[in-house]
Computed example of a mutant assay.
Amino acid sequence: MINTVPEIVTGVTRGDSDAWEQARFLLTDYYCQAHNPRITLFSLTSKFSPSFPLQPQTDDSSWEGACRLRDCDLLALANLDLAVDSEGLDQLFASEPLPELMEQIPAETQLVDIPSQVFDSETGALTQLWTALTKDPLVLKPKAAAALLARLRPAALPLFSKDDRRPWGDVTDYVQFCQDLHELLLADRGRLAHQLYYLREALELPEWVSQVQLLQALVFSAWQANHAAEKERLRQEKAARRQEREEEKLRKKLAKRTKKQRKKLAKKQEAQSQAQKAAEAKAKKAQRKEGEETSEVDQAKRPVNARHLGGEEPADLGNSRAARSRRGRHVRGKDADEGFISTDPVSL
């Protein structure tokens, strides 16, 4: 069940100018793609150009009644990477009651004009068709079954791939999805259906582009653009985080290197300081030792105490005393020894 209406659909429904410009841009880019398999699913018909290798069916009316798959139908499905059992499908659509059920969904009728009872959850024609395609013996996957129905009834039935239903929320039931789209187109006196019609006319799109196809193309393109923008945002965020990690790693590396350099410098300064202290201690020790040696030399040079002086008086005290009293004189002997001859009568 649809629980989220895409923003682009809401904007187009209310006639918002920005939403219209965005829709014009998205749809122009979408339908200008030369090899878009989604477009090929609806654009391939039985009227091929002469150079096309497949031959058209001779009787289109017989196909209209029995719903026999044509070569172009199989090719259109193959472009979406969907392989189906064409013989089994031909037998299924030729047997009762599928031809009558298909007649309740006319080929050229828009989804907005389909009667509501077709989408009844128990007895509706679409419910019975969906059950026949997705149950034994065919057991088609929902994507393949919806693509087949969209190929056979392109004006009324939508695609049901994951990318088609994801923008609408948690959608799991195909019949309910078709019913919700039908109600959305009818809401507010068919405002969305009218806006899609005017949008198709403004873009001058081909006649085979139905309202439901235009709606799905718009939602799909908007979702792709938002997904690409979100992917780019996540890529930029990832790059920014990677840059931050690299910067943080570089910062830690620089911090570790700085710490190592500081530690090395501190160790070098400590070694220099210890060397300086050791040198200072060694110099002090050498100076102290030199002082001690000088003191010993000085003590060795001092004469023995004179007999006429006290033991604690200096040896030259007599000279000094004699010099003060001028009662003595210095003499130098033959062996160059100096002496003092006192002239003091007392000492004599």
Rank of each mutant, 00 (worst) to 15 (best):
N36Y: 06
P167E: 01
E100D: 11
R153Y: 07
E87D: 13
S61Y: 04
D136F: 15
D16L: 09
A300W: 11
Q276E: 03
D59T: 02
L75S: 03
E232Q: 11
L44M: 04
S161F: 09
N79D: 08
L265K: 11
V118R: 05
Q272H: 05
Q33F: 10
T258P: 04
C32R: 13
S295N: 10
L157F: 06
L186A: 09
A266M: 01
L214Q: 00
A300N: 09
S17R: 14
A78E: 07
Q104E: 02
T45G: 11
T134G: 00
S221I: 03
L77P: 00
V118F: 01
R153Q: 07
E246P: 14
Y31C: 00
F25W: 15
V171P: 03
V304D: 09
L152N: 02
K267S: 06
T294E: 15
E290I: 12
E7W: 11
S221N: 07
S62Q: 11
E244P: 02
S210Y: 02
L69A: 04
A279N: 07
K301C: 15
T45E: 08
G190D: 08
Q179N: 12
M102W: 06
P345E: 02
A306R: 14
E338T: 03
D120V: 01
L75G: 01
V331Y: 10
E296V: 10
Q272L: 01
E207K: 12
T4M: 13
E280I: 09
E312Y: 13
H330E: 15
L196R: 01
A125C: 04
S121F: 06
G88V: 02
G310S: 14
K285H: 10
A266W: 03
A94F: 02
Q269V: 02
A76P: 05
F52Y: 09
Q236C: 08
I2A: 00
A19P: 03
T45K: 01
A275V: 07
R302I: 10
A283I: 04
I114P: 04
I8Y: 02
G310L: 13
E230H: 07
A281S: 00
D18N: 08
T13M: 06
R242K: 15
D173R: 05
A132C: 01
L26M: 01
A19N: 01
Q299S: 13
V12H: 04
L184N: 06
K289D: 02
H194T: 15
D164C: 07
L205Y: 06
T13G: 02
N36V: 09
L185K: 10
S320V: 12
Q91D: 15
E338Y: 07
S221Y: 06
E312T: 14
I39P: 12
S86Q: 14
F48R: 11
A222P: 10
K47W: 08
R153V: 07
E313K: 13
Q104D: 05
K284Q: 12
A322S: 09
E232N: 07
R251W: 09
L159K: 09
F119S: 00
T109I: 12
G328Q: 03
R241F: 12
I39H: 14
L89W: 03
R166L: 14
P303E: 05
Q33M: 11
R38M: 13
